[in-house]
Design a protein around this nucleic acid. Sequence first.
DNA 1: GTAACCTACAACCAAATGGTTGTACAAGAA
DNA 2: TTCTTGTACAACCATTTGGTTGTAGGTTAC
Lengths: 120, 120
Amino acid sequence: MVVQELTDTEVDGIFHALSDTTRRDIVTRVILGEQSISALARHYDMSFAAVQKHVAVLERASLVTKERNGREQIVRGGMTTLRKAARLLDAYDEIWRQRAEALEGILAEGTKQIEIEADR
Amino acid sequence: MVVQELTDTEVDGIFHALSDTTRRDIVTRVILGEQSISALARHYDMSFAAVQKHVAVLERASLVTKERNGREQIVRGGMTTLRKAARLLDAYDEIWRQRAEALEGILAEGTKQIEIEADR
DNA sequence: GTAACCTACAACCAAATGGTTGTACAAGAA
DNA sequence: TTCTTGTACAACCATTTGGTTGTAGGTTAC
């Protein structure tokens, strides 16, 4: 499925980035208000370096951006990417509904036998 | 963030399951029409066992269900879980919009200085 | 019956993941 | 200047991941 100018690899990265509770929590915090990495790190029971790595994963997926401000690195939310992921999942729902409608149509016809992509 | 009767571990599993191109493709195929595992396997350049493992990952995340029919194992889409994931991502967008509105309100006030969860 | 097919599962492997500690360096504060 | 803070990055480690092959058992077809 091709949706919204995102490559498969990019989508892989987005969902991988979101597959960790700590990283999702970081996303929540930065969209509520940008934070320095060390400010973020104080919230978690792990080393600064570990949090730094989590932020790097999110940054690679364009879910957050970093911007240096003096000695601090400010992390902000990359909402467009998050929205793209949301719309991607909506697309599955869309396919599902279309298929449901198609099936209703077939049942309404009653006579024709249509094999839907059986492929076996 | 707590959303929709899903534990952190479950959400981890859902996003992890979706972080692989082959697995997303399997989801697409089964919501278009349920398929046996071997029928799915023919589409990919990897062993049957590898596809079996991918299906197992999706099943653990409740993104698909399996039902035996004779010697075949029929894979179907678990759309409710997919919808929950979509709504979860929508929730981030919701937070983002609320925050944007709050910031507008602050700017409109003009006089007060409000520190939003700076935490440093 | 035998043969072919579909599935399950174990064992194995290389690579990636998620954490750690340690070192180094720049920017602010005292 | 010196001290502290914030960051970057390398090295290391245990575990997980994503693939393989091989073996075994249950169905269906002939």
